[in-house]
């Protein structure tokens, strides 16, 4: 594995390996001295064309705890805002000797382009591209699911687990990455969304779909092990994806009433940042079922694992 661009690039063995290494990384984070010397002397650039404080600091913490040098390159306050092309930025980073570039971009496929256009030699990690993928989010979600739902987590997959992903699938890179990765790990996925927010052309996706959250919560697609709520942008109602924020909440929001009908032990997940009161109420977000804060903590461990496997494999001249 040279780059991490899409969860579709991961075999089941590779995905499990990342989760297992993340487990080891998480263990090191309980020590008093959290820093490991593994990536000393390596340079990781966080190239962020979109504001995303939480993802950037998660990658930054991960790289720093592996002793890598970290350069944060954000669109604001850099030459990007003066109109420099992605190619020229890539050539600059190449000249500066970046070993890995973690890229967040508003255009789908921008990390793929960076990895394959011949502009740069380093490893590319997709930290979210447009409405395409966000593979490390899916990995940390899978890690969280496995940690909470599988007793002997190490080496295990998610076979037999059933996850509902609820909300704006059309515009969600988190949903795309999760559908693929959860399927790779053997879990079942149900997408629950208003028909306007389901992409055209997903007949062959490895999941089922529903327009009825109550039915899915009540077990209409089988007992759920987790409900993953997606962020919904209020602006979408201006494009007539739904009539009003209130109607969206009523039909597709997770409130206490729906949450209490979930099977015992079923988790409530959200990739953040949340719109409290829109797709999720405070009762659901702050309940004991909620893994939302854990997801953030697990994000650092998973990103440490990804950077470690990509960069240390490269150093030894072999595929990780």
């Amino acid at each position: 594995m040279r780059h991490l661009l899409s969860t579709a690039d991961l075999s089941q063995a590779e995905a499990i390996q990342i989760l297992d290494v993340a487990d080891q990384m998480a263990a090191t984070q309980k020590r008093e001295i959290k820093k490991l010397p593994t990536l000393r002397g390596r340079t990781v650039v966080n190239l962020f064309y979109e504001d995303s404080t939480r993802t950037r600091i998660s990658f930054e913490a991960a790289a720093k705890r592996l002793s890598a040098d970290v350069i944060n390159f954000s669109a604001k306050g850099s030459s990007v805002s003066k109109g420099e092309s992605l190619k020229d930025t890539a050539l600059t980073l190449k000249a500066m000797g970046a070993d890995a570039v973690v890229v967040r971009h508003s255009v789908s496929g921008a990390p793929h382009r960076l990895a394959h256009a011949g502009w740069i030699d380093g490893t590319i990690v997709n930290a979210g591209d447009g409405t395409h993928e966000h593979p490390t989010q899916a990995l940390l979600d899978a890690y969280t699911l496995r940690q909470r739902l599988v007793p002997d987590a190490i080496g295990a997959d998610l076979k037999g687990k059933r996850v509902a992903i609820v909300g704006d699938v059309l515009h969600s890179r988190v949903a795309r990455s999760n559908v693929t990765l959860l399927n790779t790990l053997g879990a079942e996925v149900v997408l629950v969304t208003p028909p306007t927010l389901l992409p055209v052309g997903i007949d062959h996706w490895p999941c089922t779909t529903s327009y009825d959250l109550d039915d899915v919560v009540n077990g209409g697609h089988g007992d759920l092990d987790a409900v993953m709520m997606l962020r919904v942008q209020r602006e979408r109602m201006h494009d007539a994806f739904f009539p009003s924020a209130r109607e969206y909440s009523r039909r597709y929001g997770l409130d206490a009433r729906r949450m209490n009908r979930l099977p015992e032990g079923a988790l409530v997940m959200h990739p953040g940042p949340m719109n409290r009161g829109l797709e999720i109420t405070a009762e659901a977000a702050d309940s004991p079922r909620s893994t939302i804060v854990e997801q953030v903590a697990n994000g650092v461990a998973v990103r440490m694992a990804v950077l470690y496997l990509l960069l240390s494999g490269q150093a030894e001249g072999k595929d990780a």
Partner: peptide
């Protein structure tokens, strides 16, 4: 719109041209 709207656009996350 960025590409034909169908199974490939759904996967690639590019806005569809139906």
């Amino acid at each position: 719109a960025q590409m034909h709207e169908g199974s490939v656009s759904a996967e690639l996350g590019l806005t569809g041209w139906p």
